[in-house]
Write a protein that binds this DNA or RNA. Structure first.
Length: 261
DNA sequence: ATGCCATAAACATTATGA
């Protein structure tokens, strides 16, 4: 089973690239972030025609996440539990059924948090704590569980070409990394780092200042695996070449292959 | 300290992103 995550930065603008990439990469499950449209505006038919079931948690203009799956999606959770007043579309979760087994997959768009400090940063840290609480509950099920998405977290200096440029940023501040470590300490394995400890593994390059041309990137898109999912992990891949396509997203797909299914 | 670029909508400036 191949599970991928990709922040497309508008599904409407990126539909042709998404279609091209789905045919090329042949993922079984895809977590999309920043679709930037309401549910009814999502290009559902175009994606269903490629053989995917679709669950959308959309929002006008900002945020928005979706799950695509070749297999049935069941037991859907829309929105991150823990705060009924939070109306930002950043979390969608479902069970992907395979014969004799089930894998639960959550797609997340974790808040950016800039400028920091400030209310947006407070929201980011609160959201990370809610994610930790929800993840702890899911881990008690002792099942294969994958939380994939745009975490807006640079876990370590190794994950940035110029870490010194990010020390005051919400993606890399000490409180952000501490919250990341509290999440990981529940027992998760980050798939990409588990398979490759090299420097220079990035998933995002800013549109500005020639970041892509200079390979001035950061690694902020992650796949967190429960122990039962980590046991089945085979390989990972970053589809970096997609960043060089015409009118690209500033993020590229991150992919993990598993032995189940 | 700001813009550098990209997106959507408030439509020609603003909010947001990272």
């Amino acid at each position: 089973m191949r599970i991928a995550t990709w922040n497309v930065n508008s599904i409407k603008t990126r539909l042709d690239l998404l279609t091209r990439w789905l045919k090329e990469a042949e993922p079984d499950v895809v977590c999309l972030q920043e679709i930037k449209c309401v549910d009814d505006a999502f290009p559902r038919t175009a994606i269903e025609d490629l053989g995917y079931n679709v669950v959308v948690h959309g929002q006008k203009t900002y945020n928005g996440v979706a799950l695509l799956s070749r297999l049935a999606l069941e037991d859907v959770t829309i929105g991150l539990p823990g705060d009924d007043a939070d109306d930002q579309a950043r979390f969608v979760e479902a069970v992907v059924s395979i014969p004799g087994r089930a894998v639960r997959v959550a797609g997340i768009y974790l808040p950016n948090g800039n400028p920091a400090p400030g209310p947006k940063y407070d929201y980011k840290l609160a959201w990370m704590e809610r994610l930790r609480a929800h993840a702890a509950e899911r881990l008690r099920l002792e099942e294969p569980y994958v939380i994939a998405g745009d975490y807006n977290v640079i876990p370590a200096a190794q994950d940035a070409r110029r870490p010194e440029a990010w020390v005051e940023d919400a993606l890399f501040r000490p409180d952000t990394r501490a919250a990341w470590r509290r999440l990981m300490a529940l027992g998760f394995t980050e798939a990409v780092r588990a398979c490759d400890d090299a420097d220079g593994v990035y998933t995002f390059w800013d549109y500005q200042a020639g970041a892509w041309q200079k390979n001035d990137g950061i690694r902020i898109d992650h796949l967190l695996l429960s122990p039962q999912a980590a046991d089945a992990l085979l390989t990972t891949r970053i589809d970096k070449h997609v960043r060089a396509w015409e009118r690209p997203s500033d993020h590229v797909p991150a992919i993990a292959d598993f032995a189940f299914g």
